[in-house]
Amino acid sequence: MFHGNLGKQITMMEKILITIYEEDVAPRFDLSSVVFIASLNDKRETIERKTIVLTSASPEELCHMILSQGITHLICGGIEDEFYQYLNWKKVEVIDSVVGPYEEVLDLFLKGSLEQGTNLMFQKTQG
């Protein structure tokens, strides 16, 4: 039973959801029907990993799932501003426009170096 602040800092368990397409981060949040969820302990180690296949792609359903599953971070590709703002308002950190294989993206996140627009498929041109 919770009796208010007992002097201990209560840390919320971090849970990351990545919308995926095959082995990569899905290009679009609203069209993703497969999600990968990783739960972290307080040392930021993965303690649980699961992949969920949704019956259909729906951004509203995804938002509902994110909130009901207690997701703290969303990693996705393109996302409409409406959903981005809504999730931010619900205290979910959204890292969008991410391009790359989701396992590598997760590693980068765990190292603390993933940011909005991270592109792991970027190839240098000479131009």
């Binding site: 290009p27 679009r28 792609a57 498929m121 970027f122 240098k124 041109t125 131009g127």
Partner: peptide, 20 residues
């Protein structure tokens, strides 16, 4: 930007619903 788009699978740049 064209430099950041170069070499990236087109579905990540276009982000078109038809790509899915």
């Amino acid at each position: 930007d064209r430099k950041e788009a170069y070499g990236v699978p087109c579905r990540y740049i276009m982000r078109n619903n038809l790509c899915t």
